[in-house]
Design a protein around this nucleic acid. Sequence first.
RNA 1: GCGGUCGUAGCUUAGCUGGUUAAAGCGCCGCCCUGUCACGGCGGAGAUCGAGGGUUCAAGUCCCUUCGACCGCGCCA
Length: 467
Amino acid sequence: MTDRILIGELRQHIGKTVSISGWVDVRRDQGKLVFFDVRDRTGYVQGVVLPGNEELMAIAKEVRSEFVVRMEGIINKRPEKNVQADRINGNIELEIKALTVLSSSDTIPFEIGSDTSGIDENARLRYRYIDLRSARMQKNIRMRSEFVQRCREFLFNKSFTEIETPLLTESTPEGSRDFVVPSRLNPGKFYALPQSPQQYKQLLMTAGFERYFQTARAIRDEDLRADRGFEHTQIDIEMSFVERDDVMAMVEHMITETVEAMGFTIKDKPFPRISYKESMEKYGADKFDLRTEEEKEKGILAYAWVIDFPFFEKTEEEKWTFTHNPFSMPIPEHVEKLMTGEDIGDILTTQYDLICNGYESGGGSIRAHRPEILEATYKVMGYSSEETEASIGHMLQAFKYGTPPHGGIALGVERNLMNLTGETYLREVQAFPMTRGGQTAVMNAPKPLAEKQLKELGISIDKKNEK
RNA sequence: GCGGUCGUAGCUUAGCUGGUUAAAGCGCCGCCCUGUCACGGCGGAGAUCGAGGGUUCAAGUCCCUUCGACCGCGCCA
C-alpha cells in the first residue's frame, strides 16, 4: 500500500501512482464510467473508474456520498476539453485502480454541498459533525484556530506565560449568574464555573509572573442572544507594571499583526480612541460600526477604542454599582474622589473597550492593586467591611503582600471570529454550540441525574418543580 | 420574565377569502447512459401538515390550549 497523499498536493504527482483518502462528495454514475468527487481537509479531486475491471466497477457502483474511501490510481492531466479551470484540481483527475470503502455512510439528513445556514438549526446541531463538514463551517473553525494560534505566538514572543486557572471555583453574587456544581465531599455546598478568570489572573500578578495569558472559557448563566452563548472563549491577558496606554498598545499591536497576517485590512491605524461620553453623543451607544457600505462589502475591519467610562451607575434601588468591573482602578486624577467618596457619578474608570465592526470584541482595565482602593470601591457600592471581607477578602489579603500595578484585557474569541468571517451568529464560529434554550449539540444535556448520583451529592429534587 | 416571527416529506419551501387524491425542487431508491463534473433521461417510494382540544357538513387553513425553535427586550462585573 502506498502512502496517503493529500489531495491539495496531488498536482505535484502528475503521472505518478498515488493513494488518497477522504470522503465522497458526489458520485456521478455514467453507466460504463463512474466519477467521484473526493474531499479531504486540503481540497477536492475528481476520480474516475474506467471500464475494464469488473470487480472495481462493482465497488464503485456501491459507493455513495459521504462514504470514507481510499483510492489508489494514477494522477493524469485532463485532456484539454475536460479541464474545469475554475475548480480546484480542475486540470487533473485520479484514474482509480483500486477502491476501498473504509466506512460507509447512511444518507445524510441535510445537504452540505452549499452553505448550511438556511437549514433547520436543530437538525444542524443534532448532526453537528455532519454540518461541520460543510466548506463554510470548516473555514470558520479553521480560521478560529489560526486566529488563536497567531495571538498565542505573538504573546509567547512577548514573553507571556500561558497559565491555566481553575474551572471549579467560588460563586460570586456580583456580576452575572453563575453556573454551579454541587460538591460531593461537601454536601449542600457548591462550586461555580468561572464567569472570567479575573481574580486568578490578578493573583498571578501578585505571584510575580508579570505577563500572563490564557485562552480561557468564560461561563455565564444568562439568557442567550445571537452573539452570546452560555460559554465563550476569551484570550485573557494580564500585565504588571503597566498603565492604560501600555496595555492598549500591546493589544493593538497583537490584533494588527494577527489579522493582517491572516490577509485582512484594517480601516484605521492606530485604532481611533473615543470617550464613552462622545460615543453616546455621536452613536447613541458604547459600540459602533465605522465602516462604509463599501468597506463592509470588502470585509474591512474597523477597530476603535472606547475609554473613559463612568466607574459607577445607579441601580433601580438607587444604589451605586460598577458599570464594568469592580476590580478596576479609576483614572489617576479620579482616585482621590473614589477614596473620599465624592462625586461618585463623575468618577471615570481606566476601562477600555475594543470595538470592531459594531461589536465589543474585548475589554479590560488597569486594576486596583492596593487594598484600600478596592475597599473604597466596595464601600461606594454600599458594602459593609464585613460584606467586603466575605466577598473579596482573599484579594485584599493578597494585595497586602506586594502586588505590582497591573492591568489587562479579555478578547472574545467568538466575537473576533464573527468579524473575521462575517458571521452574524456566535454559533457559526463554535464547533459545538448550544441552542438558545440551552440544549447541547449532539449530546442530550441538560438531563436528569440518576437517583444514585443525586444521593451522592446530597440533592433532593422537588418533583413539583420538574418539567 | 416580556414581546415578535415561525413550525407542512430527510432538507428547502408552495398551499389565496376553509372544499374532498396536500404540491414542487433538492435528496433517496430502481432502470438506462463511455467524459461527466450540482451529469442527464425514465420510473418510484416518502407527510398522522409540532401536539391536544374546539367551531363546521367539511380544518394544513379559523378559534383556544400547549410544546419547541429563532430574533429582540430585561439580564449579561
